[in-house]
Computed example of a mutant assay.
Amino acid sequence: TGQPSAVDFYQRLRKHGLKVFFHHAIPDYPNDLDMIVSAQGFGANDYIPVTRQLVVVTGPGPCSGKMGTCLSQIYHEFENGSCARYAKFETFPVWNLPLDHPLNHAYEAATADLRDYNALDNFHYDAYKIVAVNYNRDLQAFPLLRALLNRITGSNDGYQSPTDMGVNCIISGIIDDKYVQTAAKQEIVRRFLQYEADFRLGRTATDGAVIRASEIMQKANVTIADRKVLTAAREAARDCESRHKGDAGIYCGAAMQLHNGDLVTGKNSPLLHSAASMILNAVKHLANIPDSQFILLPEIVSSVANFKYGLGSNSRVGLDLSETLIVLVVSASRDIYAQKALACLPQLAQCDVHLSHYPSRGDEAGLRHLGCSYTYDPVMPTKNLFV
């Protein structure tokens, strides 16, 4: 339709040598089936030539045109005398787990901003007398999808339900349901904290996702108190303040739960951000290094701090997590304790982390690099943190 953003994106892709195909607006879509399944409908879209029998169609997210692309291709294939079909690779919801299983609740939490909800697939039960779980958008779209496929193929022998067209074998990979339920409940709390932070920090205009996630937490019978690292991080920040530590009247705490269940905390100081302190404490704990043992060489820390101060961009020179990891790598070339600590970093992947404050760019980049599952309180690290 000549959208400037679409034209710009097309030109960028072409400059990178990528082939680009267009879909066009179809009048009265999705109501006029005669128009949709015609040369002026799907037939007006570009045909995408393929050489493989199995083709994967992916997109950046929901409502990105994946199903429309598949239907258009199926139309063209049948017009060219070929028989084509499509199936959806569905991760969630898990159709053969109970509707109220925490894993299915976690899917609802992950899409709270879209207001997706799970429901029983009445089409599947009518066809097979088997209870199956699906979600609202697929259930709402299925009558139209079935009508379009029947019109394109000229047959009623296709899918009888949304569950039919989904490929989902997740339940075969669950060997410890109790562990999965626990992990799913943690994910629900993580999503709630993420939505709350986005709203309170102004990233989203309304609190709709926060309210929806709160409702899901009630269904799953979980609260933020079930996230142990949250409680530990807030306690670390309060302890930091009560001891008059911190940095220039700013008191921050961070907490990590290791895979063996141990909790490790960190507090900010003039030298380190709380996230950096927490990571150093975690690897020292894993490497059995005494708390009193330094693993960052003082001369390297001093050089980095002086460099930051010399830039003049910030009067505080405490190292964030990304900077601390670099100092640790350099220190490991000359110090045996730093080498042992560095070797333990991979064990932090997928560990739960919570910060009592909004993370700096360097802290967030470091946590992502380590593969930690982190959340944070939507509070800027100012002197008024606990007012």
Score class of each variant (00 low, 15 high):
A255R: 00
I174A: 09
L272F: 14
A225Y: 04
R227D: 02
I295S: 04
K185S: 12
K267I: 13
L286E: 09
S277N: 08
G208D: 15
D164R: 04
L297T: 11
I216E: 15
R203K: 10
S269M: 09
L193H: 05
E299G: 04
D176V: 07
Q160K: 09
K284V: 03
I188K: 09
N156W: 01
L258K: 02
T163K: 04
V264K: 05
I295W: 02
S155E: 12
D164V: 01
E299Y: 07
A209Y: 09
I289M: 04
L280M: 15
A236W: 02
V222T: 12
K178C: 06
A225L: 01
A282W: 04
V283Q: 10
I211F: 07
Y179P: 01
Q218L: 14
C252H: 00
Q218M: 14
Q194H: 12
G202W: 01
Y179G: 08
Y179K: 14
K284N: 07
R238T: 04
E187P: 06
L297Y: 02
L263R: 03
E235F: 00
V264L: 06
K185F: 09
L296T: 06
V210R: 07
N168V: 05
T223L: 06
I188Y: 05
G261F: 00
C252N: 03
T206L: 10
E235K: 05
R200S: 07
A233Y: 01
I171Q: 13
R238W: 01
G166K: 06
T206Y: 09
A209V: 12
P290D: 11
I188D: 08
E215T: 14
E215K: 15
F199I: 08
P298H: 04
R234E: 04
T163S: 09
V189R: 09
D262K: 05
V210G: 12
G166N: 13
Q194E: 14
T182A: 10
I175K: 13
A276V: 00
R191H: 15
D239L: 14
I279E: 04
E241A: 10
H259P: 05
S274W: 01
Q218K: 15
R238D: 07
I174L: 12
G253P: 03
A276E: 01
I224M: 11
G158K: 00
G208V: 08
